[in-house]
C-alpha cells in the first residue's frame, strides 16, 4: 500500500475557519499520514507573524451563532464572540493557532504559503512564521501533492 497523503488548502483567515484545517492535518500526522498545507488568500493570515495571534471569529452572517444579525453587527460583537470562543477553547486546553502550527511543523507536516496571495497582499517571506517551509505557486503545490486526498477550507 502506498503512503497516504493529505493536502489541506486553507483559504480563510477567521479563527473558526483556521482550526478545522490545522486539526485535520494534525490528525493525519498522528495517524501516520503525510500532511501538506497550502495557505492562500485570507488563509495566509494563519501563518502571518503579525496576525496569527489576532485571528477573529465573526458572528455576522453566521447562521450557527445564536445572535440576531442586527445585534451581531454592532461594534464590539466580533471581539466578544472571539473572546468567548477563545475562552471555550482554553477550557478544553485546545492549543492556540501558533502552537498548532508548531505542533504541525514538529510532526513533519509541510506548510506552504501561496505565491500569488503573497504578491496580492504585498507580503515577504519574512512576514510569515518560521514553520512555513516555502512560498510556492498553486501549480507547485499540485505537483507536490500528487496522489493526495485534498481538503479545501
Amino acid at each position: 500500500m502506498s503512503q497516504r497523503k493529505l493536502a489541506v488548502i486553507c483559504s480563510k483567515g477567521s479563527l473558526d475557519m483556521a482550526y478545522p484545517g490545522l486539526i485535520m492535518a494534525n490528525a493525519a500526522r498522528m495517524a501516520g499520514v503525510d500532511a501538506m498545507l497550502f495557505f492562500t488568500f485570507w488563509g495566509l493570515d494563519i501563518v502571518n507573524k503579525k496576525k496569527v495571534e489576532h485571528l477573529h471569529m465573526s458572528p455576522l452572517g453566521n447562521p450557527s451563532v445564536p445572535i440576531p444579525a442586527m445585534v451581531a453587527g454592532l461594534p464590539g460583537m466580533e471581539a466578544l464572540a472571539t473572546k468567548m470562543m477563545k475562552a471555550d477553547m482554553d477550557k478544553l486546553d485546545i492549543p492556540h493557532v501558533s502552537e498548532m502550527l508548531d505542533i504541525l511543523y514538529q510532526s513533519g507536516a509541510e506548510l506552504y504559503g501561496c505565491q500569488l496571495a503573497m504578491d496580492m497582499f504585498k507580503l515577504q517571506r519574512d512576514d510569515l512564521v518560521p514553520q512555513v517551509a516555502d512560498v510556492i505557486t498553486a501549480m507547485d503545490f499540485i505537483d507536490k501533492t500528487e496522489g493526495a486526498q485534498i481538503i479545501f477550507i
Binding site: A27, R29, M30, G32, V33, D102, Q106, S107, G108
Partner: peptide, 17 residues
C-alpha cells in the same frame, strides 16, 4: 519529550502506535 522526538520514535504515527 519533544513532539519532534515523539515522531522520530514512532514515525508511522504516534497517535495510534
Amino acid at each position: 519529550v519533544s513532539m519532534k522526538d515523539l515522531y522520530t520514535l514512532f514515525p508511522k504515527g504516534p497517535g495510534k502506535l
